[in-house]
Design a protein around this nucleic acid. Structure first.
Length: 949
DNA sequence: CACATGTGCAA
DNA sequence: TATTGCACATGTG
């Protein structure tokens, strides 16, 4: 068995797509501007397979020209597929070139899909006594599995799972893998546009297979079925048979299996290295050389086929590559660095590349802090028992101030002991002179605040730095380390497991591992800082970083710790009312539909409305083939069918209840009795904040019923009142100022109602004769302009026809010519520079601005106009927040800033301070940033958030 | 239990 | 075929 010859057949496109999308948020772009994500992703997978399995026979299979046969059978076949992304198209020639240089056979057959080629080869190889592994994540291949043919599926997060006959039997609930074809034929496949039997999903398909065994047998016995299902299946027998054919992998592709052609041979190492160098794949070169180095190719006899659930194995590779680390009782004394530190360390973890120590309790810590206080700039990272800083307890703190070296202070579980330990560290944290470096410092600051420690001094947050360098990318430390340091740190998952059932607490991890993990993070963060410092200077965003984002981090930490008071009782009574109304509507809907179903399920609702009730001739469908049942679609139908309005009302109330009325009380933090949102400072690509757990930036206001929720947000107690301060039309003011459009600027300077003023101009009527409808349409255009609306979009948003909408937009630009000029300047700037920027120099890169795809390019052009506007508004309110926060703290006011909702700030105002606050807040907001257009802020107060508007 | 989809809330 | 977000219920692997 173990010496059976093994053949690996790689499904190229499947792995290429997978690789490409794995990097979608942080695409690999080399210095020539090429997107190399797809190549990188594919090569990683391929080298991984080779390294793990050491196959003696291997080929990579590509599609070419699609499946002529299948399209002939069914013209819609794969018609749902989006166009192949550019990043993949450009990758293919490179991948061919690399595979050739690696001397890896490539299999393509014009007019056949890789599935068919792989299937045919696998069956032929089986006859030759081979054991074949099909390397693909695509479950369709399960139909080919036999005693000697396996699926080798790459898993997300590393590792592989092998599917043999037992796995396929279990997954698909079949006795024979061939029945997978019947299964796919019955339930269909949206991505391949295989229709399947209508009304049959996974569950029904499994039920049918258990009862009838095959599509044919099911169709022959439809008399045993009942009701709607019987009708539908009897009517669609042919569709079922066609679907089955489409799902069948062909085994008669004209290719030969000559085993010689598939033998792995020595790659042309210089050539491959050259290509990789050209692509700037430094880490992949190492990986490649390691994979093909002389000792690495030592033959492997046993396959690593696994029987059960997938197991990941990255850990062993890592230590194998870097050498096992060793543990010493004390630091070696032959190094100058350790001489000074060995006195207080109890464990040293040393590998070829780093030197991490944990600090023993007692006197040792005092000595350590003394050393710490001699530094000018220190990176630190707290380890805690959880993710909620209000309840998390310190497990340890890592420190690093020199690349490759660092220290870890484990914290005792006992509260008093922990507090005593943090007291020893207080002089460091509260030292104004020492710069503190970290990744997501807002978290650490909040945790330490719970121990009454105030982190002072200059801050450098690597997450914020990277957000300014490129806001569209992701900013987790893991991806930053991979992108900038070519290093994969130990993941938290490896340490404490996946979240859920038996996830460990950091406390349960042995100190040595805590040290290794925590100090590594601090070490890496320190290295990232060196990197980003330069880039911030280059991008001229240093000021934005130092003057806005870093100071704001402290402001947000304070707001989050503060939280807001919520009237739970009020929400509970709202909930009771909603329950009653929802239940009544539900009964009315069932009665109108003549059946019971789940109204909240778009799938079921679509079938009831459009198949059973046939309310519309040609209902619109989503890209996955479901009926569209969105609010905009249903609203059109409301006047014709009474059930529609009821469904809309039901939806509205159900949304209100589940998302706000019932969810918010559960978010009250027991330890404070308040709701603490978490502001994300590095999520929105334009520079806005976002809010979550709970999201307090989307509390309803537009409908009467919805806005009641705002009554639940109340002041701290009777000595306080809520104050809300809103920027009035800040985005329009910004676009007016940036474009220097005099008419609009004048309107703002004169304090006119801007939408009425616009209506007066575009409809050519005196200001006082503007109708409500005209104003409303003008308002829609004003907002639409900021987003880059089209005539189509505008006509959808208003009652206007497409032609009227076009005319309105044209007239608009005639009246505001500089606005249009400004917009095209932004697009031109983006084309020339690859980015646009806000008033404070916050950049957004628009890689698609020169795309040949008009849809993609259009989206980038709208971003070029919108990002500076939305982003400048974000900049301005951030300035205001910082200034207000500073005045509130320096003046020792009891008033607290609680919430930010993009153009609004909400405060808990101590009543005696109310008059001062009204002035202070309004003044600071209006003067945060001076432009040719005045900023206007409306301030209001009340017993709750609704009244304060 | 994790993820995708459709839907809908805000500025 | 309008920008930026987050969260819910459902459905699926």
């Amino acid at each position: 068995m173990s010496d059976q010859k093994r053949l690996f057949l790689v499904d190229a496109y499947a792995l290429i797509f997978r690789g490409y999308y794995a990097f979608i948020k942080n695409p690999r772009i080399n210095s020539k501007g090429e997107d190399t994500s797809a190549i990188m992703g594919f090569m990683n997978s391929l080298l991984d397979v080779i390294k793990r399995e050491r196959p003696d026979h291997l080929a990579v299979c590509f599609d070419k020209g699609g499946s002529a046969d299948r399209v002939e059978m069914f013209e819609a076949y794969k018609a749902n597929r989006d166009a192949t992304p550019d990043g993949i198209k450009t990758a293919i020639p490179y991948i061919y070139e690399i595979l050739k240089a690696m001397h890896i056979p490539i299999m393509v057959k014009e007019g056949y899909e890789a599935d068919d080629v792989i299937g045919t080869l696998a069956k032929k190889a089986e006859k030759e006594g081979y054991k074949t592994f099909m390397v693909t994540p695509d479950k369709d291949f399960a139909q080919l599995v036999s005693e000697n043919i396996f699926m080798y599926r790459p898993m997300f997060g590393g590792g592989y799972e092998t599917w043999g006959i037992p796995e396929v039997q279990k997954k698909f609930e079949v006795t024979d893998p061939l029945q997978v074809i019947d299964f796919l034929g019955m339930m269909g496949d949206a991505s391949d546009n295989i229709p399947g039997l209508p009304g049959v999903g996974e569950k029904t398909a499994k039920k049918f297979l258990a009862a009838y065994g095959s599509m044919e047998n099911l169709l022959a016995n439809t008399h045993e079925l009942k009701g709607k299902m019987k009708e539908k299946i009897e009517a669609n027998g042919e569709l079922g048979l066609l679907s089955k054919k489409l799902a069948t992998i062909m085994l008669d592709v004209p290719v030969d299996f000559n085993e010689k052609d598939f033998e792995m041979s020595e790659p042309d190492i210089p050539k491959v290295t050259e290509i990789f160098q050209d692509l700037e794949f430094r880490r992949l070169i190492d990986n490649f050389l390691k994979t093909f180095s002389a000792e690495a190719i030592a033959p492997k006899t046993e396959t690593s086929q696994k029987q059960d659930a997938p197991k990941t194995t990255p850990k062993e590779e890592k230590s194998a590559g870097e050498g096992q680390f060793s543990l010493f009782g004390a630091a070696p004394s032959d190094s100058a660095q350790t001489e000074t530190t060995s006195e207080y360390t109890r464990k040293t973890i040393e590998t070829t590349s780093h030197f991490y120590q944990s600090v023993a309790p007692g006197m040792a810590t005092t000595l350590f802090v003394k050393n710490l206080l001699n530094q000018t700039s220190v990176c630190f990272d707290t380890e805690t028992t959880g993710l909620n800083p209000l309840t998390a307890e310190l497990v340890g703190i890592a420190f690093s101030w020199e690349t490759g070296k660092g220290f870890y202070i484990p914290f005792p579980q006992e509260k008093e002991d922990a507090q005593n330990l943090i007291e020893l560290l207080r002089p460091f944290f509260e030292n104004e002179q020492i710069e503190k470096i970290g990744q997501n410092l807002k978290y650490d600051i909040k945790v330490l605040a719970k121990y009454n420690v105030d982190v002072k001094g200059k801050l450098f947050d690597t997450m914020l730095a990277h957000y300014l360098i490129n806001p569209d990318m992701r900013h987790n430390m893991d991806v930053l380390a991979e992108t900038y340091l070519n290093y994969t740190p130990v993941s938290i998952t490896e340490l404490i497991g996946k979240k859920g059932k038996n996830q460990l607490s950091m406390r349960d991890v042995p100190i040595e591992e805590q040290t290794e993990y925590a100090v590594e993070d601090a070490d890496i963060t320190l290295q990232l800082k060196e990197h980003f410092e330069k880039e911030l200077g280059e991008a001229n965003t240093q000021k934005l970083f130092d003057d806005i984002e870093v100071p704001l981090l402290r402001v947000l930490a304070a707001m989050e710790l503060e939280g807001i008071n919520l009237d739970k009782d009020f929400l509970n009574s709202l909930s009771k009312d909603l329950t009653k109304d929802i239940s009544n509507l539900k009964q009315e809907i069932y009665a109108a539909a003549g059946q019971e179903f789940n109204i909240a399920s778009p799938k079921q609702l679509g079938i009831v409305l459009f198949e059973n009730m046939k309310l519309v001739d040609k209902p619109k469908k989503t890209k996955t083939g479901q009926y569209k049942t969105g609010e905009d679609i249903l609203s059109y139908l409301a006047k014709d069918h009474e059930i529609i309005q009821k469904v809309l009302d039901y939806r509205g109330l159900a949304k209100l209840k589940s998302t706000y009325v019932d969810a918010l009380p559960l978010q009250v933090e027991p330890s404070t009795g308040r709701v603490h949102t978490d502001y994300m400072q590095t999520v929105a690509a334009t520079g806005r904040l976002s809010s979550n757990n709970p999201n307090l930036q989307n509390i309803p206001i537009r409908t009467e019923r919805g806005r009641q929720v705002r009554k639940a947000f109340v002041p701290r107690d009777e000595n306080y009142t809520l104050l809300a301060a809103d920027y009035s039309q800040i985005e329009l003011r910004i676009i007016a100022a940036l474009s220097k459009e005099e008419t609009m600027i004048e309107a703002f300077k004169n304090g006119e109602d801007i939408h009425a003023s616009t209506a007066s101009k575009v409809f050519g009527v005196p200001l006082e004769e503007v109708t409500r409808e005209q104003r409303s349409n003008a308002k829609t255009v004003n907002f639409g302009i900021i987003y880059g609306v089209s005539a189509f979009g505008l006509s959808n948003q208003t009652d206007l026809s497409r032609g009227e909408a076009k005319e309105l937009i044209d007239t608009y630009y005639e009246n505001y010519p500089k606005l249009r000029a400004y917009m095209s300047e932004q697009v031109d700037f983006a084309r020339d520079h690859g980015y646009v920027q806000t008033v404070l120099g916050r950049r957004r890169y628009l890689k698609d601005i020169n795309s040949r795809n008009a849809v993609v390019r259009g989206a980038a052009e709208r971003n070029a106009v919108n990002a500076p506007i939305q982003g400048s508004a974000a900049d301005i309110i951030k300035i205001a927040m910082i200034n207000i926060y500073n005045k509130l703290s320096h003046g020792n006011f009891k008033t607290k800033m609680l919430l930010q909702v993009h153009d609004e700030l909400v405060f808990d105002v101590y009543k005696p301070e109310l008059e001062d606050m009204k002035t202070l807040i309004k003044t600071e907001m209006e003067n945060a940033f001076v432009m040719d257009v005045p900023l206007d802020v409306e301030v209001d107060t009340g017993l709750n958030w609704l009244e304060a508007h």
